[in-house]
Computed example of a mutant assay.
Amino acid sequence: METRTDEIADGIYRFSTFVPEVGPTGFTFNQFFVDAAEPLLFHTGMRALFPAVSAAIARIRPVEELRWITFGHVEADECGAMNLFLAAAPRAQVAHGVVGCEVSIDDLADRLPRRLADDEVIDVGDRRIQHLDTPHAPHNWEARVLYDQTTNVLFCGDLMTQLGNGPALTDADLVGPAAVAEDLFHATSLGPAVPAALRRLADLRPTTLAVMHGSSFTGNGETALRDLASVYDERIAADRTGAPRA
């Protein structure tokens, strides 16, 4: 498997590994590296991806300079290599929401994590990274996203997931492909928390959506998030009435 590196915004790099065996058309596993005064990684990848992801980081900055290890929620593809990165970077610390730390990360991480309150901001030296709790959106009680207030990049985690191996960054519609992926995987917690979280994130008016599975998006992120919220509103309503989904 090859891991590609693309700069999707100023100082923000996407590492992408395509796995053709997942789903009918393959699936990408993406990590994002913020090349800041205090470098930040969003998603570590599974443990098996640690050599490839650490090598990708090393082409930008020495891995031992990594300061913040972050991810959307507790799953192998999000944080499987967490402790390998903690061992490789002696100053690194996991930063996550309070719930995630209390129920999992305090025990799983080899060093105690930094607990973040909803809307709390980490100053990484030359940009400000905001933490936002998104419980059950798209899934898991401890789910959250990050927002780079300096570059208007929203690190979406599993939101806007797509199949296949598209370009690193696109201005094409992602809502339709995200609906197709949901039809296949049924990965989202289908409840009111999802559209509510998407509309809260839309209020940030991001110009780049850094997506964990599939292409990242550049353009009107507010509209894309609101359109996806409407898709889930329709699905929730259909489930309540027993009507076929659109």
Rank of each mutant, 00 (worst) to 15 (best):
M1F: 08
T3H: 08
T5N: 07
A9S: 15
A9F: 06
R14P: 05
F15M: 02
S16T: 13
P20F: 04
F29W: 10
F29Y: 11
N30D: 13
N30M: 04
V34S: 11
V34K: 09
A36N: 02
T44K: 09
T44Y: 07
T44P: 09
G45V: 01
M46D: 14
S54E: 06
R61I: 00
R61V: 00
P62M: 08
E64C: 13
W68G: 09
W68N: 06
E78H: 15
E78Q: 15
E78P: 08
N83W: 06
L84C: 03
F85G: 02
F85S: 04
A87H: 11
P90M: 05
P90S: 05
R91H: 13
R91N: 13
H96C: 10
G100C: 00
E102D: 15
I105Y: 08
D106K: 13
A109R: 09
D110K: 11
R111T: 09
R114N: 09
L116T: 07
D118V: 03
E120Q: 11
V124A: 15
D126F: 03
D133N: 14
T134I: 12
H136G: 08
P138Q: 06
H139Q: 07
H139C: 12
W141S: 10
E142T: 10
A143L: 06
R144W: 06
V145Y: 01
Y147L: 01
D148M: 02
D148Y: 01
D148N: 05
D148K: 03
T150M: 00
T151G: 01
L154Y: 02
D158C: 00
T161F: 08
Q162G: 07
L169Q: 02
T170K: 04
D171S: 15
D171W: 09
D171K: 10
A172Y: 06
D173L: 07
A178D: 00
D183M: 14
H186R: 14
S189G: 12
P195Q: 03
R199M: 00
A202K: 11
R205K: 15
R205G: 12
T207S: 15
L209P: 10
A210F: 03
M212Y: 09
M212P: 04
G214S: 06
T218D: 08
L225K: 03
R226K: 13
A238M: 07
A238Y: 05
D239E: 13
A246M: 08
